[in-house]
């Protein structure tokens, strides 16, 4: 029987797990991070469009602060969230952005002077001030009052994940990949670690620790069509559920993204619409303003997804061998913008 002891055990080596691992290790603990895959291949890397934080540097972000980020988050949650947690989050996010810059994330920056943008399908000009030149910029995203989404082109998750993984290496966090949690070790309402299967040898090992932190991502692969990677099967939540003691919360709350590409299901970032792209139907007609006069294509994801399906049900979808779909039009943004800020989409 192989037992591995450590002070802190983190299960799941994506962005959240690695960041937690850095805290533990740099506080003098011996921390082990377990991951299904080499950590730089975690699904966090698939996040494209950006990270919300109210830095308020760019012209279209001016006046932004924690209060607005808080309100957008609560409204987005349809009042289902824990408002104290939302407050904790919005106050820390700007600090996280700056820390990540320090760790090497090459955030896209404000350039002083006039720039052409697309607003509501019309070309328009914004002028960035000299003082803001070189500060972290933001783009528009759904359901937000200000342009608040900081980004590195459309590889934001990728740069964040690599920065955190490198930081973990720097701090000598003991990262072990190709390890899968099978069950949690617990007694008298306390968790002591996990039974883990080595995916190369098939051997079972016990990882025993003072504390265990699970950061294994979502359960998108319960669905047939999903933007999630094949590793997002919810095995972390299942191990918790199978303790018979711990609880899962709001499992029915599942988000459907408006713009995965048909038929692969690979995501086209919300940045496409944030930067000025629009949805069109079989007639090339831009239908979202009819449904959502205020936020148009940039209402929250649940609302846009439903409106799209509603429009398809009205017979306005484009027939294809893979079922009816709609069009996402970013041609109006111009080749220069697309090849710079939406490279993965291109």
């Amino acid at each position: 029987m192989k037992i591995v002891y450590s002070d802190a055990l983190v299960i799941g080596g994506g962005l959240a797990g690695l960041r937690a691992g850095v805290v533990a290790q740099s506080s003098g603990l011996n921390c082990i991070v377990l991951s299904l895959v080499p950590v730089k291949r975690s699904h966090s890397a698939a996040a494209q469009g950006g990270m919300q934080a109210s830095v308020g540097n760019a012209k279209m972000s001016q006046g932004d602060n924690e209060d607005l980020h808080f309100m957008d988050t609560v409204k987005g949650s349809d009042w289902g969230c824990d408002q104290e947690v939302a407050r904790m989050f919005v106050n820390t996010a700007p600090k996280a952005i700056r820390e990540l810059a320090n760790w090497g994330v090459p955030w896209t920056r404000v350039r002083k002077g006039s720039h052409e943008i697309v607003l509501d399908t019309k070309k328009s000009t914004i002028t960035e001030s000299d003082e803001a030149h070189g500060l972290i910029t933001s783009r528009d995203f759904g359901g937000t009052k200000k342009w608040r989404t900081c980004y590195t082109a459309d590889a934001t998750g990728h740069t964040m994940l690599f920065a955190c993984a490198n930081e973990a290496i720097k701090h000598d966090v003991d990262v072990r990949d190709r390890k899968e949690v099978l069950s949690l070790i617990h007694k008298d309402e306390r968790c002591y670690g996990a039974v883990v299967r080595d995916l190369i040898t098939g051997e079972l090992e016990a990882y025993v620790a003072k504390g265990t932190c699970i950061s294994t991502g979502g359960y998108g692969r319960l669905y047939k069509t999903t933007t999630n990677a094949v590793i997002c099967e919810g095995t972390g939540q299942a191990a918790v559920l199978e303790t018979g003691v711990a609880t899962l919360g709001n499992m029915e709350a599942v988000q459907f993204h408006p713009t995965p590409i048909v038929p692969s299901g690979i995501l086209l970032t919300e940045g496409c619409r944030g930067d000025g792209g629009v949805l069109r139907d079989i007639d090339g007609y831009r239908f979202m303003p009819d449904y959502e006069p205020e936020k148009k294509d940039l209402a929250s994801r649940d609302v846009v997804s439903r409106r799209m399906m509603e429009h398809i049900r009205k017979g306005k979808g484009v027939p294809s061998p893979f079922g009816d779909h709609l069009w996402l039009d970013i041609s109006i943004l111009g080749i220069e913008h697309v090849s710079k800020n939406l490279r993965d989409v291109q």
């Binding site: 289902g80 699970i214 991502g217 979502g218 359960y219 998108g220 319960l222 669905y223 069509t225 999903t226 933007t227 999630n228 919810g234 972390g236 939540q237 918790v240 711990a246 899962l248 919360g249 709001n250 499992m251 029915e252 709350a253 599942v254 988000q255 459907f256 993204h257 408006p258 713009t259 995965p260 590409i261 048909v262 299901g265 995501l267 086209l268 949805l279 994801r301 846009v304 997804s305 799209m308 399906m309 398809i312 484009v318 294809s320 079922g323 009816d324 779909h325 709609l326 069009w327 996402l328 039009d329 970013i330 989409v345």
Partner: peptide
Amino acid sequence: MPVRPAQHYSMGGI
């Protein structure tokens, strides 16, 4: 680009 909504994120969890 052809698009249609699909599962994307799990708000629920531990």
